[in-house]
Amino acid sequence: MSPVLAALVPVFGVIALGWALRRTGLVAAPLWGGINRLSYQALMPAMLFSTIVAADFAALPAGPFLIAAVAGFVAMGVITMGFRLIPMPGPVFTSLFQGGVRWNGFVLLALAPAAFGPEGAALVALVFAPTVPLVNLMCVAVMGVWGASTEPPDFGRVMMRIITNPLILACLAGAGANALGLFQSGPVADTISLAGRAALPLILLTIGAGLNFSALGARPAVLTLSVTLKLLIAPAVFYLIGVLMGVEGIALVVLTGVGATPGAAAAYVLAKEMGGDAELMAGHVTATTILAAITLPAALALAAL
């Protein structure tokens, strides 16, 4: 079995387990709040920090890779904006836009150590720092124009959320500590690493718990378009930008993987908050998560050729 496929089985197995736990009521829907919060506030930042701090960036070109990743998300935003020409209600378009640009990096991060090695995993972790604010700003701007909410978007609040985002802070702290040679080993590094090991299983369980198969019937034409954008067009766009910018080897495979990740549940939360089509968003996240089990390894294999 290839390393990617071997890593894929537990990743999607744990996602399926999360879905089964919520569906059977073993861990009912209202009880997932604390699990989410602990993951987001503490465990995921710990994982990002310890993945980045220990990486040897001398062996991998992080600079061009990050510029290509940012360009990939901007390009997907521009491509998705093109679909505004097709007549559809504003809130539906906002969900199509979020579907095209939002990514769930944790699925890729779970595969990364086995598929790309520790340095490849660190590249995946690094992508969070510039792209989480970028993607959030793009989505909030689009929601402000076409969302159903009558209140104007509060960009001050969005900026505050970005500045205090634990994932971004952890990435920056990890990169800083890596550059200074701090906390790369020893008791503190071991503690953060131990905490971080709990992040992926929990986030994969919560991804599974969030799957909503009844939402798959909502707006089948737009859903098909958003899934195609995310799982087929985005990986091709990221790959092409990588090739054009001279990214190669494992970094190019990682870059394609970033494009090929499924949609993120944060899109659903924002759609609810700012008047997007939340049902369509739930369907998009569910469909892309399930289909990514096939398309993500296929994209990685093609990029590695």
Binding site: P10, V14, L38, L43, R197, A198, L200, P201, L205
Partner: peptide, 16 residues
């Protein structure tokens, strides 16, 4: 494999 990933990865959670 999924049980191993869920269980071992979550040692920290039980300590917390």
């Amino acid at each position: 494999a999924p049980l191993e990933l869920a269980g071992f990865g979550s040692l920290a959670l039980v300590l917390i």
